Simulated assay, not measured.
Amino acid sequence: MSPTSEAPEIAILVDYDGTIATVDVTDELVRTSASERQWLDLELAYRRGDIGSRALLRAETRLLPGTAADLPDLARDQPHDPTFVPFVEYARAHGMTVEVVSDGLGFFVAPALATLGLGGLPVYSAALGYTPTGPEITFPNGHPACQVCGTCKRQRVLLHQAAGRHVVFIGDGYSDQYAAAHADTVFAKAELATICERRGLPFQRWRTFDDVHAWLTQAQARGALSGPVARPYVCGPETAR
């Protein structure tokens, strides 16, 4: 395929915890708000597959402080990959769609992006708010039928593919596995890279967004990005049919 006007549009979906933020902010918030045993028991149940991320996040929300004012400063002062902002600027300048997909607590993502000058970047995450009785979490970006994940990252991939876009997914962890199984190009590091290797999913290794930038520039120059490709479902209500 040559780099012509027929090249597909590109949608870039980016995880937040451990990807844009260089720490897992959700994990750190829960660990500082609860006992190590409480956090570890929930995390192990999630990793064993006993519960999905939706149940995990509900349980973690109950461990948070009773008022927003008592949340640790980590939610406000998160370290970010310094190459993310120039990467987004590059992608937007070249007509690519960029959005953040997070399956964590989510409430800190949009404010953090605003501090980086990216307040208009679309964010798909859970919604956590405080009521007179304490914190409550809802899942406006969950799958309409499947109750496993808090935010259905796979659904975002499929929606962009249905519009004819080549979907690039960038992530680092366990909650990224379903999106990685369906995206057209996957950038994986840390635990997500291990999952991709174990399951035979093709992926590109990355350390910073400069790596993604360089790969995309070369792939576009070669005309190497094809239209979306359908893949077998690996999660969701369809697997029960």
Rank of each mutant, 00 (worst) to 15 (best):
T19E: 07
T22S: 13
V25C: 04
V25A: 03
V25Q: 02
V25W: 00
T26Q: 03
T26A: 01
T26N: 02
E28I: 01
E28V: 01
E28M: 01
L29N: 01
V30Y: 02
R31P: 01
R31S: 04
A34Q: 05
S35N: 04
S35W: 00
R37P: 03
D41E: 14
D41A: 13
D41P: 03
D41V: 11
L42T: 13
L42K: 11
E43Q: 14
L44N: 14
L44S: 14
Y46D: 05
R48L: 07
R48E: 13
G49R: 12
I51T: 11
I51C: 11
S53H: 07
S53K: 03
A55G: 10
L57E: 04
L57W: 10
L57P: 06
A59M: 07
A59T: 05
A59R: 14
T61K: 05
R62C: 06
L64M: 10
L64H: 05
T67E: 07
A68H: 07
A68S: 09
A68V: 02
A68I: 00
A69V: 00
A69Y: 03
L71P: 06
P72W: 00
D73Q: 05
R76I: 00
R76L: 04
D77A: 10
Q78L: 03
P79L: 02
P82Q: 10
P82W: 04
T83R: 11
T83I: 00
F84N: 07
F87K: 15
E89L: 11
E89C: 08
E89K: 15
E89T: 14
A91D: 08
R92P: 00
R92V: 14
R92E: 08
A93R: 15
G95E: 13
G95S: 12
V98R: 15
V98E: 04
E99I: 02
V100A: 11
V100E: 04
S102K: 05
G104Q: 09
L105D: 09
L105A: 05
G106Q: 08
F107M: 06
F108M: 11
F108H: 13
A110L: 03
P111V: 05
A112G: 13
A112Q: 09
A112P: 02
L116A: 06
L116H: 08
L116G: 05
G117W: 04
G117K: 09
L118D: 10
G119T: 06
G119V: 06
L121R: 15
P122H: 12
V123R: 08
V123M: 05
V123Y: 09
S125P: 02
A126N: 14
L128D: 10
G129L: 07
T131L: 05
P132C: 05
P132K: 13
G134F: 11
G134L: 03
P135I: 02
E136N: 11
I137K: 13
T138V: 08
F139L: 08
F139G: 07
P140L: 08
N141M: 03
G142V: 10
A145W: 03
A145C: 04
C146M: 09
Q147F: 02
V148C: 08
V148M: 11
C149M: 12
C149K: 06
C152R: 12
C152Q: 07
K153T: 04
K153N: 07
R154Q: 14
Q155F: 02
R156K: 15
